[in-house]
Amino acid sequence: MGYLTTHVLDTAKGVPAEGLKILLYRVSGNSHRKLVEMITNADGRTDAPILPEGKFQPGSYELIFFAGDYLRASGQAGEEPLFLDQVPIRFGMSDPDAHYHVPLLLSPYGYSTYRGS
């Protein structure tokens, strides 16, 4: 069975992003259905898969990373409004048996993502 994991790295400080809130939504057309809310641990990961086996279904999803709250808490926030506040990543998962990993590499003025392993 497939499942989804994520993690967040603070590339400006060179450390995992601890305490960052993440929401996961299932997306269908213009409809979003919230599935879960999690907080990253000391390793910048969620304590369990954000979408575990048994709840996984192929389809379109969106992760929303609350980067602004993390940047404020870590002393990296610039002037308001922040350049990056909430970072949405919309992606598709087609293989019902695959492990999908969608990490976020974050700094106050930029981010990147990729399909990890």
Results as ranks from 00 to 15, higher is better:
Met1Trp: 13
Gly2Cys: 02
Leu4Ser: 06
Leu4Gly: 05
Thr5Gly: 09
Thr6Cys: 07
Thr6Ser: 08
Val8Gly: 06
Leu9Gly: 02
Leu9Asp: 10
Ala12Asp: 09
Gly14Ser: 01
Pro16Ser: 02
Ala17Cys: 07
Ala17Ser: 10
Gly19Ser: 09
Gly19Met: 11
Lys21His: 15
Ile22Phe: 11
Ile22Pro: 14
Leu23Pro: 00
Leu23Tyr: 05
Tyr25Asp: 03
Arg26Leu: 02
Ser28Met: 13
Gly29Asp: 14
His32Arg: 15
His32Ala: 04
Arg33Gln: 14
Arg33Met: 09
Val36Met: 15
Glu37Cys: 03
Met38Trp: 12
Ala42Trp: 07
Ala42Met: 05
Asp43Gln: 12
Arg45Val: 01
Ala48Pro: 01
Pro49Asp: 11
Ile50Ala: 09
Pro52Tyr: 09
Glu53Gln: 14
Glu53Trp: 09
Pro58Phe: 06
Pro58Val: 01
Gly59Asp: 12
Ser60Cys: 08
Ser60Val: 02
Ser60Glu: 15
Glu62His: 09
Leu63Val: 00
Ala67Gln: 11
Gly68Lys: 08
Asp69Arg: 14
Asp69Gln: 14
Arg72Thr: 10
Arg72His: 14
Arg72Ile: 11
Ala73Ser: 15
Ser74Glu: 14
Glu80Cys: 00
Leu82Asp: 06
Phe83Ile: 06
Phe83Ser: 08
Leu84Pro: 12
Asp85Asn: 13
Asp85Gln: 10
Pro88Val: 00
Pro88Thr: 01
Ile89His: 10
Ile89Asn: 12
Ile89Gly: 12
Arg90Thr: 13
Phe91Thr: 03
Gly92Leu: 06
Met93Lys: 09
Ser94Arg: 10
Asp95Leu: 02
Pro96Val: 00
Pro96Ser: 05
Asp97Tyr: 03
Ala98Pro: 04
Tyr100Phe: 07
Val102Leu: 02
Leu104Arg: 01
Leu104Ile: 00
Leu104Pro: 05
Leu106Arg: 04
Leu106Asn: 06
Pro108Gly: 00
Gly110Phe: 11
Gly110Thr: 13
Tyr111Ile: 02
Ser112Met: 04
Thr113Tyr: 13
Tyr114Glu: 14
Tyr114Val: 04
